[in-house]
Amino acid sequence: MSEHAPIGLEKEARTVRALTHSGNFHADETLGYAILHYALSPKGSLGGRVLGEDADDRLQFVRTRSPERIAEADIVFDVGGIFDPSLGRYDHHMKDKPLRDDGTPYSAAGLLWKDYGHAAIRNIVTTPVTEEMVVAIWQSLDKSLIIPVDQDDNGVAKMGKLSLADIVSACSPAWDTAELYGAQEAKKREALGFANAATVVASHLVNMVDRVRASLKAANRVVEAYEAAEDKRILVMETGMPTEKVIFERDLPVVYVVSPAGPEQWNVKAIPPVRGDFGQRVSLPEAWGGLEKTALATVSGVPDAVFAHPARFICGAGSRDGAITMARLALEIDAALKSKAG
């Protein structure tokens, strides 16, 4: 959280002039621009502002290396040689560059995220959220999105092919654009490329914020369902949602998750021994594998049984009660087999 009042987030809504460098662009300044967009003027035109097509906007944005323009701007990021948030300066290319507590160098995006990320999240989220949720979303995206950009931009670790950094780079005009079309056209294509990259990055940021919000909401529901479960090995969810993350993070002894798969089907999904791995903590009964409907109902004794995957990691029934019964039977059969083997 910022230790000062970031420029533009004061109570008075004044025009804010933001600036980054012209020329080659990367993920950190395009993401930094997207953060400022959502924090200060989310109703403005993200692309139009870059192309000079949206003059009536609280956030004014320019890409230049002009010392005079840099001096005049309210917020300068990824250029200027100064890091002083109280003055709206967010460069990170100095010898004495700003570092995270663990020594990781910040990029311009990381520095702006620290000051403007919470405000951006509040404007991105379209459903009511608490300040605690905003902080949790900020922390999650800082780890999953911002730090990788910091590392890539500072040469600590590459994000890799088809990463956000790679997609941003692909928006840049080809090296011979000026040679083929002239300097003026190359300048236009560079501006358009930045606008396109910023739009892609902004969409990714919005989607990640919403997915983290939903993930946190799911975590609360998973915990509630687990606490209410009669048999802690069977987690019954009344709505389909991600559950594995919470199960492994909290080391819950869940073996099967029962949840609706449509208006007329409930599934039983086996939890793997390691998150994201193949295999199951307890596989579904061998006799069920690959069977459907009548054949499965006959073998399992569950009248509305629908299917059991040949790999025995998922099965389904026509009702909530039927699915829960299948989960209980699977545990009983497994226990009987282990007792016999022992």
Rank of each mutant, 00 (worst) to 15 (best):
P6L: 09
G8N: 03
A13F: 09
A13S: 10
T15D: 10
A18P: 00
A18E: 02
A18S: 02
T20N: 02
Y33W: 09
L40N: 06
S41K: 03
S41P: 00
G44R: 04
S45A: 11
G48S: 07
V50S: 11
L51V: 05
E53H: 10
A55V: 11
R58M: 12
L59Y: 04
L59D: 02
Q60H: 07
R63A: 07
T64W: 01
T64M: 02
D74F: 08
I82Y: 01
S86M: 12
G88L: 12
Y90L: 07
D91N: 11
H93A: 10
M94S: 14
T104E: 13
Y106E: 09
A109D: 01
W113P: 01
W113T: 09
A120N: 09
R122P: 01
T126Y: 06
T130M: 05
E132K: 11
A136F: 09
I137K: 04
D142C: 08
L145I: 15
I146P: 01
I147H: 10
V149R: 13
N154D: 12
K158P: 00
G160Y: 15
L164W: 03
A165S: 15
T177N: 04
E179I: 13
Y181G: 04
A183R: 13
K187G: 06
A197E: 08
A198K: 10
A202I: 10
R221E: 15
R221K: 15
R221S: 11
V222I: 15
Y226L: 02
A229Y: 01
E230D: 14
R233S: 04
R233F: 03
I247E: 02
F248Q: 06
E249M: 12
E249P: 01
R250H: 09
L252I: 07
V255T: 13
G262A: 09
G262S: 10
E264P: 00
E264Y: 15
E264C: 04
W266L: 07
P272K: 14
G279Q: 03
R281Q: 05
V282W: 03
S283C: 02
L284R: 07
E286S: 07
W288A: 13
W288D: 08
G290A: 07
G290Q: 06
K293Q: 10
A295F: 00
V302A: 09
V302W: 00
A305I: 06
A308D: 06
R312Q: 07
I314P: 01
M326P: 01
A327P: 01
A327K: 04
A330F: 05
L331D: 04
D334F: 00
D334H: 10
A336T: 12
K338C: 07
S339K: 14
G342H: 11
